[in-house]
Write a protein that binds this DNA or RNA. Structure first.
Lengths: 205, 205
DNA sequence: AGGCTGTGTTAACGCGGTTAACCGACGGCG
DNA sequence: CGCCGTCGGTTAACCGCGTTAACACAGCCT
């Protein structure tokens, strides 16, 4: 029943920590449910007893958030890559939105943990204001600034970016939470919302 | 410690059921956390032992959803009342959006349970497609139809309403989940998003 | 060599949802 | 009138959860 148990680490400090993060991410993806990822399950997969986890993470929330945060680092890189491929600012904006939604749908449980959870359950390292200064949001502000430069707008890019974020989040989170609602195809939905905002915000026809 | 224990019901069938619903709602509002509302806590407040709950509800999820669903019935009534007060269709639309967001912020935990939870955790009686045919969403479709009638639009109201829902949900859920993000005032946010959609969708200046 | 630190263990606590088994009171029926 | 089923509660218990305390053993520093 426990053949991989005889696993034991020596003076290797952060090796197990890494394994724990990997195992947690795997479990999160496999089960697709935050609740199914128990400390005991993670420990079992790594081949270690549950309290060992606490030598490397203060509590379950921090572990989960660190895993999701790693995934979101990849989102940031993905966004950068996507935007580098589009010359037109408005095309960049739409590509950006689509990449955001796609990412959320590809990692639904991670998205839920980071953006659909209780505020007081989030560790200090992932406070709301930290998020506002983080890569993905700032990247969005940059794109909006570019679009505003091309099309002209009197409103400040940060406010526009905030609204756009709520729009993309609205799509993403509802698709995750209510997948059986009679949605139109995701592509259409995103394109429509982006177009609506472009027209509504920059008065473009 | 347990003076209200000697409570006991006779042939009153659904009386206790009602008490359980009330106690659950109270607890949900007081604690503001789904997790704090344990079966044991509810039972204790009603003055009954935990297994008694299961004579009236199949499991905790169903109990919680029934409570939230009751609150949302009130949202429907509230929406109706709000919309009856506005003559102008576009004003009705904005009032509708504001009422939706306000409701979510006033009942954050209920909103989270109904619209920010896992899809497979929701009882059958609250499936996604049931929601699409329910009062509040249909009310929105009606308003959109009115606006489209006033301003003219070639797109179908149902698609427009869906987009508007995602927009209002985006605002509501992010405000709930990330209250410390540097948001603009809620009123401004809602007004801005509504205006943007009106311009972007109906081409109104 | 001796002790400190870092990293794992075993054992246990308390709480959670939920189930099984029992049990008394009420209402209908022979 | 007395039996009996069902309704609506009880007590006891199961099992999994996050987490903590106490302990143990390795290797490095002095």
């Amino acid at each position: 029943m426990t053949p991989p148990r005889p696993r034991s680490a020596r003076g290797d400090g952060p090796a197990l920590r890494h394994e724990i993060l990997d195992a947690t991410e795997d479990l999160l993806i496999e089960t697709g449910s935050e609740d199914a990822v128990s400390i005991r399950a993670v420990a079992g997969r790594v081949g270690v007893t549950p309290p060992a986890i606490y030598r490397h993470f203060p509590d379950k929330q921090s572990l989960l958030f660190e895993v999701c945060s790693l995934q979101f680092t990849r989102l940031g890189e993905h966004l950068d890559a996507v935007m580098a491929m589009e010359a037109d600012a408005t095309a960049r904006l739409e590509a950006c939105g689509r990449a955001y939604v796609d990412f959320g749908l590809a990692h639904p449980e991670a998205y839920r943990i980071m953006f659909m959870g209780r505020s007081d359950g989030t560790p200090d390292a992932h406070r709301d204001d930290v998020l506002a200064a983080a890569g993905p949001f700032m990247a969005l502000v940059d794109v909006v600034t570019d679009v505003a430069g091309e099309l002209g707008s009197e409103r400040e890019p940060l406010a526009i970016a905030t609204v756009l974020w709520t729009a993309m989040h609205g799509i993403t989170s509802l698709l995750i939470s209510k997948p059986n609602f009679p949605w139109p195809p995701v592509d259409e939905l995103v394109a429509e919302v982006c177009a609506t905002h472009l027209r509504g915000t920059f008065g473009q026809e």
